[in-house]
C-alpha cells in the first residue's frame, strides 16, 4: 500500500510538472490517467519495493554524476577510434556480476551499455557477456570499478528485502 501511495504521488507530481495548465478539466483528466496507470501497474504486478522511485534516492545523484564522467571519457575514446578505425579489436568478454538484487544487476548492465565501447549481450545472476570495442574499453569494465560503485549504491539502502536477498545468495 505504501508503494501505491508513493506511485500516485510521483505520477501526480509528473502530471502537474508537465501539464502546466491548471484547469478543473485537466485535473480531472490527470486523476483519471493516474488511476489508469496505477490499475495497470497493479495488474502487471510491478508495484513493489524494487519499483519504488525513492529506493536509492540520496546516493543515486552521486552515482549519476560519476556515470556522466564515465560516459564523457568513454565517448572521447570511441570518437578517437572512429577517426582511426584500424585500431579497433571487437571481442566478447565475460565479467562477474557481484550485485545481489535484480534492480542493481539491471543498473549494472544498463550502465555498462550506456557507456560507449561496451554493450551487454546477455546477463545471468552471476556473469554477463559484454561486447567490447577494443582492449581499453574492456579494461575499463574488467577493473570492476563500476561494479563497486553499484555495490555501494546497493548497500544500506535500508530495506529488509535487500538483506534477505543477500543472505539467500550467500547461502
Amino acid at each position: 500500500m505504501r508503494y501505491v501511495i508513493s506511485l500516485i504521488f510521483v505520477l501526480a507530481a509528473l502530471w502537474l510538472a508537465v501539464s502546466g495548465v491548471y484547469k478543473p478539466l485537466l485535473f480531472g483528466l490527470g486523476a483519471g490517467s493516474i488511476a489508469l496507470v496505477v490499475w495497470l501497474s497493479l495488474r502487471m504486478d510491478v508495484v513493489g519495493i524494487e519499483h519504488n522511485p525513492g529506493l536509492y534516492f540520496p546516493k543515486l545523484f552521486a552515482y549519476w554524476g560519476w556515470l556522466v564522467g564515465q560516459i564523457i571519457s568513454a565517448n572521447i575514446h570511441v570518437a578517437k577510434r572512429v577517426l582511426s578505425p584500424k585500431g579497433i579489436r571487437p571481442h566478447i568478454i565475460e565479467v562477474p556480476v557481484p550485485q545481489h538484487t535484480a534492480v542493481s544487476r539491471v543498473t549494472y548492465a544498463n550502465s555498462c551499455t550506456l557507456t560507449p565501447g561496451t554493450v551487454t549481450l546477455d546477463i545471468t545472476p552471476e556473469r554477463m557477456r559484454v561486447h567490447a570495442l577494443d582492449d581499453v574499453s574492456a579494461q575499463g569494465l574488467m577493473s570492476q570499478e563500476m561494479a563497486q560503485k553499484i555495490l555501494w549504491l546497493e548497500s544500506q539502502s535500508g530495506n529488509p528485502r535487500v538483506t534477505q536477498n543477500q543472505t539467500e545468495s550467500a547461502s
Binding site: I71, I72, N75, V78, A79, R81, V82, P85, I88, P90, T113, L114, T115, P116, G117, T118, V119, H131, L133, S137
Partner: peptide, 21 residues
C-alpha cells in the same frame, strides 16, 4: 562511426555515442 565500423556489434558502439553524449 556508423558508416566506418566493420560489423554490426561495433556499429552499436557508434550509435551509443550519438545516443549518450
Amino acid at each position: 562511426g556508423l558508416l566506418r565500423f566493420p560489423d554490426f556489434y561495433s556499429r552499436l558502439h557508434a550509435a551509443g555515442m550519438t545516443d549518450t553524449l
